[in-house]
């Protein structure tokens, strides 16, 4: 028989290292053709941080993100960005890049302020133009301002760094503020369980994530979908078998991870509760998506079968054993 059920999983996740200083730095060089070189220690490991950091620099400088060349994770030229871990790079390296870009544009703003006769604090850089926030029509071209800077012997360079506010944890009580901000999420899973084979099919996942601000919504959705896939593996498949210290399934023939075949439709919902200390309100999303997936799926299986499970991964063998035990108990009750 096939039985359906649904389940919920919620999570929170502190952004950055726990109760430790974990700064990141960045350098910006604004070239006289309006292109940008961004030097960041932040290692892009496929999650898309270089694109997100380019967008942050571009937003500050008023240039196209595609014109920001990102050189990342080269200790010969980039400042330290700290680890790409703890879902910290958009928040922490993002703030470093923002600060570096703001510093690089100061000479331009001073020049434009003189030309336009307004305080530099009232100027906006957008679409290769610098203009007063109250009068976008009265603008000066960005590249022209860079060239004027160069003629006057001024470079347009910036460096910036950011360290989130944290305090250490008390040894005895754990009291402290280990993270400057937290991401939050709720996921919902719908499953179908085959009571003959114990196989679980995940039919649908809905994942709502509070990321503060999505700098790149498609990249956020990518992280959510990838996290859900990994969480599905954690719920139903993945287990390294270790006996007497030896891994018995050291390869993909016997260590199963989800493939596209196993994945349901995933509906990613982006919630933006802006974080006031983050770049344009952003927090992080790297790790959170896999956290609530397994409990949502396990709760959905329990909802379908009326049996609770306490051990991951929830393999067909565990489901069949639990169903047999439940039937045995029901049988005994009926017999008495």
């Amino acid at each position: 028989m096939k039985k359906r059920g649904w389940g919920l999983g919620c999570m929170w996740y502190g952004i950055g290292n726990t109760g430790l200083a974990n700064p990141s730095g960045a350098f910006i060089d604004l070239l006289n053709d309006g292109t940008v070189i961004l030097l960041t220690g932040c290692a892009d490991i496929g999650q898309g941080s270089s694109t997100v950091l380019a967008q942050i620099a571009a937003e500050v400088l008023g240039v196209e993100p595609g014109k920001v060349r990102v050189i990342a994770g080269d200790t010969g030229v980039t400042p330290e960005g700290g680890a790409t871990s703890a879902s910290r790079q958009t928040y922490i390296s993002g703030m470093a890049v923002k600060a570096a870009a703001q510093q690089a544009q100061q000479p331009l703003l001073r020049k434009a302020a003189q030309l336009l006769g307004v305080p530099k604090e009232e100027l906006v850089c957008r679409d290769y133009k610098i203009f007063p926030f109250f009068d976008p029509q009265r603008s000066v071209p960005l590249q022209e301002m860079i060239r004027q800077c160069r003629r006057a012997g001024e470079m347009t360079l910036g460096h910036g760094w950011f360290n989130p506010f944290t305090t250490g944890l008390d040894e005895e009580t754990g009291r402290g503020s280990p993270y400057a901000t937290y991401a939050y999420a709720t996921q919902w899973a719908e499953v179908e369980v085959d009571t003959e084979t114990g196989e679980v099919t995940v039919l649908r996942l809905i994942a709502a994530h509070d990321v503060g601000k999505a700098i790149n919504p498609m990249a956020v959705e990518g992280q959510i979908e990838g996290g859900c896939a990994m969480g599905l593996g954690y719920a139903l498949m993945e287990e390294l078998i270790v006996e007497d210290g030896v891994i018995l399934n050291a390869g993909f023939a016997h260590y199963l991870i989800p493939t596209m075949e196993d994945l349901p439709e995933i509906r990613a919902i982006i919630v933006e509760e802006a974080e006031e200390t983050g770049p344009f309100g952003a927090k992080g999303v790297g790790e959170p998506p896999l956290i609530p997936t397994a409990p949502a799926i396990i709760n959905a299986v329990s909802n379908a079968l009326g049996v609770r499970f306490f051990s991951l991964p929830l393999t067909p063998e565990k489901i069949l054993a639990a169903l047999a035990k439940k039937e045995g108990q029901q049988g005994r009750r009926e017999a008495t």
Binding site: C10, L169, R175, P178, Y184, A185, I206, D210, E273
Partner: peptide, 21 residues
Amino acid sequence: TNQLLRQSVGIGETLRRVKAE
């Protein structure tokens, strides 16, 4: 850990959005 949460606490909103969906 007795950390006071001041702002950007979206768990309630994620729950509401999922339920609506």
